[in-house]
Design a protein around this nucleic acid. Structure first.
Lengths: 241, 241
DNA sequence: CGAGGTGAAATTGCATGCACTTTTCGGAAC
DNA sequence: GTTCCGAAAAGTGCATGCAATTTCACCTCG
């Protein structure tokens, strides 16, 4: 009877998938994997994400792939239109600008709240980590400094002690990531970043909210300028024009 | 042959669905419908959204329902855990507080940017609409004033001329909606709201960014206080504790 | 040689079905 | 009466398959 055959086949596939994709809940895992590819630049804005290829790649059926793509769409990392392949989000220059501006405002808020609310421990850790990063600047270790930079900003966001703001700023940062890739390749950017971080740290240590906010705002503004040049790849203005 | 029967059945269902659910792309439509039910309070925080019932209700299969729920999850309107029914998001009191604080900060930003950037038309419209709403206050028209209130705030968000901030503030507002339901039922709240709006409008007309920001911030703060009492229904602290 | 049109291949949208997990409920033990 | 247990019921997770749309190559016509 055909039902039996279908069942056996089904079970085999099930087992095979379980062996290969380990640990975690399939769709969640795919979301993270794809998001990571986008954020780290392994996939560029405008690139197609067709369901069949992804399904093959992760050795699952199209159903979970579709759910993952929908979630990524809601996160703003991919664009979806009916009966079209999903593509890595490619924002217009004006929308990109609005994201950078939003980022600056959000970082300013985080810096101000951090200056007001960070615990003694948080302040101390931030200062220590910052000072430790000077070594990376002198060594010109771009990769390592980029990692330190991410951590520094995450500390800043956490220090605000506001979970919703943390979510917003994290999500915005993720959406911005594809457009500020080679940030620290620009000559002298490392030292400048370090110096700007320093201003934020000092203001936070002094619990000077408005100084911290101002320092954070201009820090992002400068990154924005440095990154603007990396936009306008692929067809421009495709979304959120 | 069984294949034929299956095909006919399939086609019938297809046609029936098309007749009943009109206009739009199924999943998108469900997302909007369900989001609306949550935001308008037809579904309360903690309420279960099981896939089978929803599928029956919309006369579709579970597949699009699942996609809709995933999207709503990403939007923060529903909570999903593996092998559990989705439920309308029920945030902890501290997370609710963080959303209100974030809302205040975002509105403050929008007010400041609006004061700086609104076109002459936008300013004029805002002022006119505001003055027109006085009638609703005197009449005690809660429903109508609530609608006016929504529009007033939307104008404020648009006036900032920043699409990404607009998205963030809109989304936050939607997530907050279930928790500030009966806002204008509180005695005297209508008149107070009108007065606070007035302060914002005046600051914007004067292009006084910091005054507008301050007025907007305290406006939200007061709403927050008025709404706090409506939280803590259902089991508290279920999420984002 | 380019513009437009046509059919096949590729791809998405959704329905259906099986496996597995959670929930519920009846009954036995205490 | 309450607690604990087990089986049935309900519900979710994912695979598979058909219909419909889009894409693309190829051909015809100007």
């Amino acid at each position: 009877m055909y039902a039996t055959v279908a069942m056996q086949n089904h079970s085999l596939k099930q087992i095979r998938r379980r062996e290969i994709i380990r640990a975690g809940t399939t769709v969640e895992q795919m979301v993270r994997a794809i998001a990571d590819m986008i954020v780290t630049g392994q996939m560029l804005p405008g690139e197609k994400l067709d369901e069949v290829s992804l399904a093959a790649r992760f050795d699952v059926s199209r159903t979970p792939v579709r759910e993952a793509l929908r979630e990524l769409g809601a996160m703003g990392l991919v664009e979806r239109e009916p009966n079209r392949s999903a593509i890595v989000t490619n924002v217009s220059e004006t929308y990109l600008h609005s994201m950078f501006e939003a980022m600056a405002e959000l970082e300013a808020i985080c810096a101000r709240l951090s200056a007001e609310r960070m615990t003694v421990d948080e302040r101390r850790t931030m200062e220590l980590e910052h000072k430790a990063s000077m070594r990376l600047v002198h060594a010109g270790a771009e990769e390592e400094y980029a990692a330190h930079n991410t951590e520094f900003h995450t500390r800043l966001y956490r220090g605000a002690h506001n979970d919703h703001i943390f979510e917003m700023v994290t999500q915005t940062r993720a959406r911005l990531a594809p457009f500020r890739r080679a940030q620290f390749r620009l000559p002298g950017r490392l030292a400048k970043s370090y110096e700007e971080h320093g201003r934020i740290v000092i203001a936070i240590m002094r619990a000077d909210g408005s100084a911290a906010a101002q320092a954070a705002y201009s820090h992002v503004e400068i990154v924005s300028d440095a990154s603007a040049v990396f936009a306008t790849t692929g067809e421009p203005g495709a979304r959120n024009s």
